[in-house]
Write a protein that binds this DNA or RNA. Structure first.
Lengths: 166, 166
DNA sequence: CCACAGTGGTTACAATTGAAACCAATGTTA
DNA sequence: TAACATTGGTTTCAATTGTAACCACTGTGG
């Protein structure tokens, strides 16, 4: 197979840290680059921030959600949701109506315009995702899916329970 | 075209987007959770922000670097480096001296104290990384390494060249 | 009913970040 | 060598984000 003969990089000194191989660092660089690129793409076209797009992405699939429902779905906090919602209202991308049963609650939905924008962004987003993974084989894509899932589970445990040690 | 019934998992409507399966979104959630958890761990212990720790991580391996060198190594911008450096100077974690050849240039190194802190953080960081990937098999770890590398290459192309289409 | 705890959501304020202007030193060119 | 462009690094200001306080409403126990 394509095993290169050079010295295994696992023969690494334990008292130094190679930042460029450190998983949290790599994840951060990767995520920032990807998010920035994509948000430029649709942010410019549709005046959407990433949080606002996330809200739309959820409302494109589920109707009559409250802000609290969105918190649950998006891993964003309530303040971020509130700000995203108000900017989407300004753009007329969503509608907000009172819940007659509970007057604190506000029911959110995509507007007609929002639906159109959603329909145009979805293929764009998928195109970016496809382009990102274009250099991966089919096996690698599956592997990635499973691996990310596992890492997300662990990272979520970190934020819920305390940290290691402590 | 009709739906392909062979692959139930991927038989997804093309006009909707499942945010929780969307790679850029997952990367963002994962990276944020990981970074926040870890920065809490050593931020609390050593008064370090993530950018400051990154600078230390580089200076722990390479000596006599300038701020511009750090920009190259860390994927951070010069302003972030400048702020990280000044906070590290305040903590006496690094030293700064003039380059006699080029009086604009400032030569940075870990101080004695910085070296001690570095030596204590490295195992901590490695412990977090290990814990994060603890649920992955040996194969998965190798796969992840290769996959991330590929994704980083593509994402870097995005930020260098323009975006898709356009 | 009426206090009072809990929920849904917004506002206010502080800390972080990013973009652009800026200063000082060096390099280049005429 | 005077002018101008470039480089290294900092400062400034605006936009973004996070935390906590807050208001309005609902549900519950006395």
């Amino acid at each position: 197979m394509t095993n290169d003969p050079k010295t295994p990089d696992t023969a690494e000194k334990q008292d130094e840290l190679r930042l460029e191989k450190f998983l949290p660092y790599r994840l951060s660089v990767l995520s920032n680059r990807v998010s920035n690129a994509i948000s430029q793409a649709y942010g410019a076209r549709f005046h959407l921030t990433i949080p606002a797009w996330r809200v739309m992405a959820i409302l494109g699939r589920f109707q009559d959600l409250s802000a609290a429902d969105l918190v649950e779905q998006t891993a964003m906090d309530k303040v971020a949701i509130s700000r995203a919602v108000s900017s989407l209202l300004k753009n007329d991308y969503i509608t907000r109506s009172e819940d007659p049963v509970d007057r604190r609650r506000q029911v959110l939905n995509l507007s007609e315009l929002g639906r159109e924008v959603y329909a145009r962004i979805v293929p764009l987003a998928q195109q970016y995702e496809n382009d990102l993974i274009a250099s991966l084989s089919a096996e690698e894509r599956e592997q990635l899916d499973g691996i990310i899932e596992k890492l997300l589970v662990r990272a979520k445990e970190w934020s819920e329970r305390g940290l290691i040690d402590e």
